[in-house]
Simulated scan of single mutants.
Amino acid sequence: MSIGTEYLRVVTERFKNIKSLGDRTFEQISEDDIHWQMNEDSNSVAIIVKHLSGNMISRWTDFLDSDGEKPYRNREQEFENDITSKKDMIEISERGWSTLFETLNSLKESDLLKEVYIRGEKHLVIDAIERQVAHYSYHIGQIVYIGKQLKGESWDSLSIPKGKSEHYLQEMLKKHQ
């Protein structure tokens, strides 16, 4: 086992876990919920998804050979609330995640110390990956928070429910003995 190969395995799992939080939120929210905005300056779930997908397609397409900010990307348009349905939103989300996972699966340990560019700024591949882990976690956290606020008491927790920490700990300890 090499550290680079292990890193790629671990970071792929992290991205899958991040994606899962978003997907499990989508399952709980309604068609109308995807467009809810607290105010004019805030983003709906649909807008956040559109932005994430646009970022993913731009960053991960031709990842090793071209700047991560593609000339065809219209970032400003990503913040227009024009997704017409939850089904369309999920398809947009899947396009972004598929682009990311296809690229991650193609990377080799020898790629991790190569240099890539994002908006003309040089990054090691490993740094560019970590940058995206942070960015996607931030936005998926926003999606989960919006979903949790909208669903209130009917929200199905995506982690350890309040008041269940000790029970969860004991179950994990039993599982790993």
Rank of each mutant, 00 (worst) to 15 (best):
G96T: 05
Y145R: 12
E121C: 06
S157W: 08
D82Q: 11
F101C: 05
Y168N: 10
M38D: 02
P161R: 03
S106G: 07
V144R: 11
N105S: 09
I92Q: 08
E109C: 08
K174W: 02
F15V: 01
I90P: 03
N39A: 13
Q149K: 13
Y136L: 15
D88H: 04
Q77C: 00
G163V: 10
N43A: 11
E40Q: 15
E94F: 05
Q170C: 01
R75W: 01
D127S: 13
T84F: 05
S106D: 04
H139Y: 10
N17S: 12
R59P: 05
S106I: 00
I118C: 09
Y117K: 15
L21I: 11
G68I: 05
K50H: 09
W155F: 14
I34Q: 04
L104T: 02
L64A: 11
W36E: 06
S98P: 00
G68P: 04
R131K: 14
G120N: 11
G141V: 10
P71C: 09
S98G: 05
E13Q: 14
E109Q: 14
D23G: 01
S110F: 09
L158P: 04
G4H: 04
H139R: 12
P161D: 13
H135E: 10
Y136E: 13
K162G: 07
L100Q: 02
W155C: 08
L158Q: 07
S66I: 13
I34L: 07
N81V: 10
K16H: 10
E115I: 15
Y138T: 01
W155M: 10
H135K: 03
D111R: 12
L150V: 11
L52G: 02
E109N: 14
I92P: 08
S110G: 01
G141A: 11
K87Y: 09
I83D: 03
D156N: 11
I3Q: 12
H167L: 12
K108I: 06
K86M: 11
Y168C: 01
K122I: 00
K122P: 01
R9Y: 00
V45N: 07
I143H: 05
N43K: 15
T12M: 05
D67Y: 07
L107H: 00
V49R: 00
E6Q: 13
Y138D: 09
G4Q: 09
E69F: 15
N17Y: 10
Y145Q: 10
K108S: 08
L173W: 11
S93M: 11
R14M: 10
I118G: 07
V49Y: 00
E40A: 13
G68Y: 02
H35E: 09
Q77P: 01
M56N: 04
D33M: 12
N74M: 12
V125C: 02
Q142I: 01
Y117N: 11
K175A: 10
K108L: 08
Y72A: 12
I118D: 03
I83R: 02
E80T: 15
D67I: 09
T84W: 00
L107R: 02
I29E: 05
G96E: 06
W155Y: 10
L112T: 03
N17A: 15
G4S: 13
S58N: 01
S53C: 02
I140E: 07
F26A: 07
L113S: 13
I143R: 06
N81A: 15
R59H: 01
I3N: 14
L100R: 04
K19N: 11
H35L: 14
S42T: 13
Y145P: 04
S165Y: 13
K86C: 09
